[in-house]
Amino acid sequence: MTHTAALLWGLTAGVLPVFAFLTGLALLDTFRLVRFRQVAEAVVWGGVAAVLCVCLSRWLFWNPGAEGDWYGMFGAPWVEEAAKAAGLVFLIRTERVAFMMDAAICGFAAGAGFALVENLVYLELLPGGGIPLFLLRGVGTAVMHGGATAIVGVVAIATGRSGRGRSLAMGLAAAIGIHTFWDMGILSPLQASLAVVVGLPPVFILIFQRSERALQMWMGQKLNQDVEILEMLDTGNFLETPAGEYLRSLNTFPPEVLGDMVCMLQISSELSAAAKGDRIRIWAGLPQAPDPQLDSKLEELEYLKRSIGLAGRHALAPLMPTSSRDRWELKSLQDSRRS
């Protein structure tokens, strides 16, 4: 086998399993919470994180003697997990990821990107490593990288949802723990790889089932609220309802701002209900029904935000509670419009 062919086979063995696993996760995403572009961006981020980590470790610590081993066992898990998670933290903090399912997919994708670059580095360092070595790295280490970063996202969403420091720290601690255990070599590479291959799929299936239930519950509750608001507005007697009385009590705002608050309620509820309808269609395997009014509604929403101002939006909050999931939904609509 030529040197190039060996490299290609090594690379294939080193990355194919992790990308096959990632494809499997994406197929389990029945609500299509994650777009292909988002997965690709997470993979790229993971690769960038790996390059940064390799540079850092070579610059600071790379020493094939005892100190190098200590870094590999106890330093690298902290640096690498933090670097991989940084991209995921960005997605959670900017409300592009809001459920355990999408956090797991994007986290795994970042880990897969990281493993891709790391295996390239190993190919450079160990060109004669052979296919079995890289197959073990592909099935074991690469999937561990993906799984550990996925766990950061899952724990962060499950415990905090908004990506605040404490919940992220918990997720990161879990990932560092797994990575450290892996690097300590308590299990042989074959045993560790088998543990990953056998243990990780059921864990992900459980996470996805729980996430799907949470998503369905949230969609059901919010859809009821949206429909209730739209029905109240449709009767023309909205101002006689408790919600309308509350709006009228906000008489410190100019009347035209109060009018735009009603419009904001209407447009937000319409957008929210339509987005949930789309999500249900995807889940049911039906084609999406593009809303021809989506562009103009999103533009109008921006106009209303400017008109109402920050104080007005705060005043409207009791009638229109917006969680990170609501903001995620709006971001998804805006992203779908751009794409």
């Binding site: 507005l233 309308g244 009018g259 009603v262 419009c263």
Partner: peptide
Amino acid sequence: GAVRTVFEI
């Protein structure tokens, strides 16, 4: 409907 509400408020 909503249009009337906006005019009133």
